[in-house]
Simulated assay, not measured.
Amino acid sequence: DYYYESRSRYYDACSEVNNYENRANELRSQRQRKIIYINQLKSDLKRYQKLLKEHPETKQEITIKPFDNDGNLVDYNVRADEITNDFFYEVKASDTAPYTQNQ
């Protein structure tokens, strides 16, 4: 009986360790996605600042892909109109869906 109890506890402990390792890997993956997204935003901001210096009369509409409460990127975009500071939700069928007229 002691052998089977010990073996059961051992396998339970191994299972728990595996669950924690999987969660740690998931968190690392989320962190990496956030870093990539932030670097993309920084690059877009530098590009926009350069264009603004070259053409100060222009304005740009900014698209933001927010995170949900769990830190995952959501599947809709928020657009901010730079002139009025209004926010618009933009929902597409897919990442490759075309813009509609006047969008």
Results as ranks from 00 to 15, higher is better:
D1C: 05
G71D: 02
L45M: 12
L51T: 01
E90S: 13
S6V: 10
I35H: 05
E61H: 10
L45G: 01
R7L: 11
K92G: 06
L52R: 14
N22G: 07
L27T: 04
N18S: 14
L51I: 06
I38D: 14
T96W: 06
P66R: 00
R33P: 02
V78G: 00
N69H: 02
N69Y: 00
E54A: 14
K42H: 11
R47L: 06
N25F: 06
F88P: 02
E57T: 11
E54Q: 14
R79T: 07
Y76Q: 11
D44T: 04
N25V: 04
Q49F: 02
L45N: 12
D81E: 14
S29V: 01
T58A: 09
K46F: 07
E90Q: 09
R23K: 13
N18P: 00
E61V: 10
E82R: 09
R23C: 00
S15E: 03
L27Q: 07
L41H: 05
D68N: 15
E5K: 13
R33S: 10
Q40S: 13
A80I: 13
R7N: 15
C14W: 00
V74L: 12
N102A: 10
N85C: 08
K53W: 02
A24K: 06
C14F: 00
S6M: 10
I36Y: 09
R9D: 08
N77I: 00
E90M: 02
T100F: 07
N77F: 10
V74A: 02
